[in-house]
């Protein structure tokens, strides 16, 4: 009876410490939860990807292109409402520093922005973009970062497509909401194709991926299969997936980062253990005099040990 009372009373003796220990544990657990959230957020970036867009790419690898004429054949497939080419350009603006890095895509200038309603465009600017072979649309974020204005010429050094390229800013598109990322530059795929035709004809009439718009998001799987079936046993087989899945396949490459986050999670668990152990040691240490007293009074070591365990548990 006394034993229980000693234990019970001691637990409530240090209200502040018990409280702080509890807070520490809660913070650690929340941190753990937060890390899980971060991992989830990593995948969430792909959530903004529309379910109504599919990406058709070369089944072998992203580095292989698809023939341009696939566009019309995809468009003919039941359920498809629009198709636009999109081609990674990979040029260097100024230098290779991360600050100056941004994505450039050669796209079908006629309808690309129709497929991306989350990019808000000014109709006049869009028209000017469509009319100018070297015209580009830049995102708001990118424009603000580099001070790009309509009429500016952006020199880009090609890597995949060698040479010095010059693009003329014809418009700035705005994000429709917070999840929209506006750090890209879009130029005419036709411009790219003409240059290729002139310089390396072997590489002309090739498209990186096709963005496929469908009317009904719930039919995404079915339509993807239909597209891939269309090109089975052809020169370049396609692999079509939702835009979200497509972006996730990029994310998978950052597996190491997720690994690091997982490791941090384990560290957090270790911290939890350390907090508990510390409390236990602190309680025992400062009460050494009490334990010694009990011992002196003739209480056996088993009683004292039971007390320490009882109190810290």
């Amino acid at each position: 009876m006394y034993y229980l009372r000693l234990v019970f009373k001691n637990i409530f003796r240090h209200k502040l410490r018990s409280f702080l220990t509890l807070v520490g544990l809660v913070v650690a657990i929340l941190a753990f939860g937060l890390l899980q959230t971060v991992v989830n957020a990593w995948y969430a970036g792909s959530d903004m990807a529309s379910a109504q867009r599919l990406i058709a790419r070369n089944a072998v690898s992203l580095v292989f292109p698809l023939p341009k004429y696939y566009r019309d054949r995809i468009k003919a497939i039941d359920g498809v409402t629009a198709v636009a080419a999109s081609n990674w350009f990979g040029g260097i603006y100024k230098d290779m520093t991360p600050a100056n890095f941004f994505a450039q895509f050669g796209v079908d200038h006629e309808n690309f922005f129709d497929l991306y309603p989350e990019f808000r465009t000014n109709p006049e600017e869009l028209l000017a973009f469509k009319k100018d072979r070297r015209g580009v649309m830049v995102g708001r974020l990118l424009a603000d970062q580099h001070g790009f204005k309509v009429g500016d010429v952006i020199p880009v050094k090609g890597t995949i497509y060698p040479g010095n390229w010059e693009f003329v800013v014809r418009g700035v598109y705005e994000p429709a909401d917070d999840t929209t990322i506006t750090r890209q530059l879009y130029f005419h795929w036709d411009y790219l194709n003409e240059e290729m035709r002139a310089r390396t004809p072997r590489r002309a009439e090739q498209v990186g991926v096709f963005v496929v718009q469908i009317a009904d998001g719930s039919r995404a799987a079915e339509i993807s299969q239909a597209i891939d079936r269309e090109f089975r046993n052809s020169l370049a087989e396609t692999l079509t997936e939702t835009e979200k899945a497509f972006q996730l396949s990029f994310i998978a490459q950052t597996e190491t980062i997720i690994m690091a986050i997982r490791i941090v999670s384990f560290v957090v668990i270790l911290i939890i253990f350390a907090v508990v152990a510390n409390t236990m040691a602190m309680t025992a240490r400062e009460r050494l005099a009490e334990y010694a007293t009990l011992k002196a009074l003739g209480f056996g070591p088993a009683f004292v040990a039971a007390l320490i365990l009882g109190e810290s548990s």
Partner: peptide
């Protein structure tokens, strides 16, 4: 010894050493 102390020795300490929870 523990039993012996309980039966034969009374302790008084400089800092009283009372159990604060009792």
């Amino acid at each position: 010894l523990a039993d012996w102390r309980a039966a034969h020795v009374g302790f008084i300490f400089q800092f009283y050493n009372l159990m604060p929870v009792l």
